[in-house]
Nucleic acid binder design. Structure first.
Lengths: 338, 338
DNA sequence: CTGAAAGCGCTTACAG
DNA sequence: CTGAAAGCGCTTACAG
């Protein structure tokens, strides 16, 4: 790259000092109107833009935001990333993306990198391994280097940091309540992400709903597995032995699997069984049948997390950790047609 | 951030010059074994890592690779990004991600940013608007600044730059040929990405297959639209008036829509109609029915594109533009069960 | 109102 | 073998 013109060269062409050029371009009130005009014209003519590396070195900042997502197996994290990128760019920051692949070791390695002064702050949704092993030291170390960290999505974690996510408990509670109000009571739960804290919260929402809405909860109707194959077997088994009127499924994969298992048994959705699941907005309406889903507004999650991080970077609020909840919305499609 | 120790501080602690510390740490043969040892020990003790911004300023490089993807509406580009990120990190580069949202204006703005010295090179899949308006000046300008540019995925473009993608024509040809070998001849085509050059290539593959395999092509069996709704109407219309044994669908959305329209008419897949489509590996097997797909190996696309870009950055081959084709693979699932 | 100087944290040709 | 000096491109306190 380069061949780009520098302050020094502009100064020479204008026969003024580098300081004067710099101040003119940065709108310092010290410089005379006339000089400012001359400088700006020449700068525009030569398409001058400051060298960001130099500016950052001087400022002791990087102009970068690091984002670590655990996976890209569905569009959820991509959408969060989209929200972050768009707003960050508008604010003059670049987004550096990392994928931890649900691995603690990789996540640590990435965080180590970031601590080398690659970014001014970090937005992270921790890997499942991080969460199961409760190994958070690497993240705390980052804050010791004064690199602020904001957690998003996977926020059911015992960490004293800013957090942005959805109310996992409430969203499932609402789903059960909705079905209950339609006079269904045999409501199953399918979970393929048992490792994640947010699964616990969602399951709790399910249990709470049963308790508070005076439904009797049958443990046999809860399917919680980490593996697709086992999930499928258990679902088959469940449908052999129990009558089910509806399923609430807690994640993307289990939602698709649930729909598929039901149809393979020649049961009809929604006539025989209803489904409410966590699927993404782009795919839910195109499935066959389309599936009623809980919209987590991933873009908003990203935007909100970024906003909090920016505030931290600018030290605008050195107060206690923030905890922001994005409201979910239930979007009704075929699978809950009554 | 900061509070990180610098060369200067290390030098002071060791009572040697900054140069000596720098050289010791960088493995210069000039320094005595003993000094190197002392320096390295203290550096390790203090967890020293060089300030990348300073190193980059000195080197006149940024250590960053910029990637522009046009959308994130399915996981294809996320997977490409995954391939890029993983390899880039191993090579000591950071990946800065941008999403153009299929907008030429946004793409230009992002490229303008990158030209300010944000990254050492660019990997881009151009926006659909860029492609329809054939507005490529901004990309050429980048190469004038000596920032190399490598195109990926959307490479059916009249530009003299490195390109990495799949053989769009051949992949569809193979799909038609496969169906033909199974004695099907009433093969429809569904395309929802008419704006993209690669759609033209894929359609050409379809036409070529018909010609070379002695099939008579009925124009009525080609559905090409830019809008989901229109696509759906035309599909319905087609199924009302024509007998179809199989569909080849050229993109993610049209594949899902095709499957859905067929099932809504109570036709069975694969018994009544077969489908081969462009869907991603993570979703294809979970659909109901699961759909035979053309795997484009997005991770390889990303890795290959990055490799070419790295070669350019290191000026290892100032030769003519490279043109690398990643082989596709047809993965058979329910929708082509015979 | 303008400019010389110091400095951000590093690397490297050059001198000793 | 070691170090002083220049310089990457910028900003900013300070002097004039």
């Amino acid at each position: 790259m380069r061949s780009k013109i520098t302050l020094k060269e502009l100064a020479k062409l204008l026969n003024v000092s580098i300081s004067t050029v710099s101040k003119s371009l940065n709108g310092s009130p010290e410089i005379s109107e006339n000089t400012v005009k001359r400088v700006k014209e020449l700068a525009a003519l030569h398409n001058y833009t400051p060298n960001l590396t130099a500016v950052n070195l001087k400022r002791k900042s990087t102009g970068n935001i690091a984002v670590i997502v655990p996976n890209i197996s569905n569009t959820f994290f991509a959408k969060v990333l989209g929200g972050i990128e768009n707003d960050a760019r508008k604010k003059g920051y670049q987004v550096i993306t990392y994928i931890s692949n649900e691995s603690l070791a990789l996540e640590k390695q990435i965080v180590e990198l970031i601590s080398n002064g690659i970014a001014d702050g970090l937005l992270i949704s921790v890997s499942s391994e991080t969460q199961t092993t409760k190994n958070y030291d690497h993240l705390y170390r980052l804050t010791e280097y004064e690199i602020p960290v904001v957690l998003f999505d996977r926020i059911n974690i015992d960490m004293d940091l800013d957090k942005v996510g959805v109310d996992d408990m409430q969203s499932i509670y609402n789903a059960v309540q909705y079905l209950r109000n339609k006079n269904l009571s045999k409501i199953g739960l399918v979970c393929g992400i048992a490792d994640l804290g947010l699964a616990h919260a969602r399951i709790e929402g399910y249990r709470n709903a049963f308790k508070e809405l005076n439904l009797s909860l049958k443990e046999e109707l809860l399917i919680i597995a980490k593996d697709n194959k086992i999930l499928k077997e258990q679902l088959d088994n469940l449908l052999n032995n129990q009558e089910v009127e509806a399923f609430v499924s807690l994640d993307y994969l289990s939602t698709l699997i649930t729909s598929r298992v039901i149809q393979e048994r020649k049961l009809r959705i929604p006539e025989d069984i209803k489904i409410i699941g966590y699927v993404n907005e782009d795919i839910a309406p195109l499935l066959c049948p389309s599936i009623t889903y809980i919209d987590q507004h991933p873009k908003s999650i990203g935007e909100t997390a970024l906003q909090i991080l920016m505030d931290r970077i600018k030290k605008q609020n050195p107060k206690n950790p923030e905890y922001k909840i994005i409201n979910t919305a239930m979007v009704h499609l075929d699978s809950t047609n009554f």
